[in-house]
Amino acid sequence: MTLTHLNERGQASMVDVHDKDETRREALASGWIRMQPETLKLLVDDDMPKGDVLATARIAGIQAAKRTHELIPLCHVLMLSKVSVDFEFDHQLPGVRVRSFCRLAGRTGVEMEALTAASVACLTLYDMCKAVDRGMVIGGVQLETKSGGRSGEWHREDSQSGAMDQTMADDTAGIPPLEHPEMQVTVRFFAELRERLNVESLHVSLTDLEDTRLSALRAFLLQRIQSGELLEQPRILCAVNHEVVQGDITLAPGDEIAFFPPVTGG
């Protein structure tokens, strides 16, 4: 048997993938965190003392997927085209089930990225909830499905991905198409901001803005969304493609912009 991560001298080596075909590669991973029923109720009611737990865990999982090569030895640096992290409350567990989905067009798979996203999302859920429940248990981190590459498709036989798989594959489905879809950005609102604005997400065409700067998007939202002045509060944070930004930046088609109140960890 040939060990792909060792060279002829038995030394650790990154696999050379230059001769592999570039194909569409996808992976779906899952995990869970079990907690006390009272802790789950606080989470469902969005009443945790540290802020929006799910929004923080989602961003952490996405960031982790993008930095898998820094965490797992010999993993390649990948240009991910999509990362999604989603959650499902499970009162039978009781706790939260996590699903992570990764996609790219490349020469190596994204299984490790999906698994890393699920793992770090679970760890972040623990960090955000440990103030009220230090006895939580994380488990069940596993690959559910993968596709692409020489090995083709693989599905876990006991996978119960169900309808959530489609949610992970396209978490913006159902939003009405725009006149210029190739120029759109996605805007999301989290935690108390989402509740007060009564909107979770929307698509905005850059052609509808005065220019392509973040300030122009803010001005557009201020006019189009009821109570949009909440976005002007200094405490409201903004992330573009899951990176918190300060000041004004230029937006590009396909960007995801998130507005959310501050959260705390530690």
Rank of each mutant, 00 (worst) to 15 (best):
D46R: 07
V137C: 09
A114C: 05
T56M: 14
L230T: 08
P262M: 13
P262L: 10
F189K: 13
W32L: 14
I236D: 01
H69N: 10
D127G: 13
A191N: 06
L74K: 12
F89V: 09
T167H: 15
M35N: 04
R97G: 04
G10M: 07
F259Y: 03
G247Y: 06
T116G: 05
Q233D: 12
M1I: 07
S30L: 04
L80S: 01
T250A: 12
V245M: 00
G174A: 00
M128E: 05
L28P: 09
M164C: 13
G10C: 08
V263W: 14
N198F: 10
D16A: 07
K41Q: 15
L3K: 03
A252W: 08
L74S: 13
T2D: 11
G265M: 10
E192D: 07
P253R: 05
L237H: 09
R134W: 12
V187E: 00
A29Y: 01
R213E: 14
G139F: 00
R97T: 07
D208G: 09
E153I: 15
V98P: 00
L54S: 02
Q160M: 12
S30C: 13
D21G: 15
A131F: 14
L42W: 02
L54R: 10
G61P: 00
R34E: 13
D158C: 09
M14H: 01
M48I: 00
V17Q: 04
V263E: 08
T167V: 11
P262K: 06
R25K: 03
L3S: 14
L197S: 13
S201D: 08
G174S: 00
R224K: 06
V204T: 15
M164N: 13
V141L: 05
P177V: 09
A219L: 08
G109I: 06
P253L: 04
L3P: 14
M14C: 02
A12V: 05
S119A: 12
F87G: 01
A173R: 10
R25M: 12
V98K: 02
L209G: 15
A258K: 15
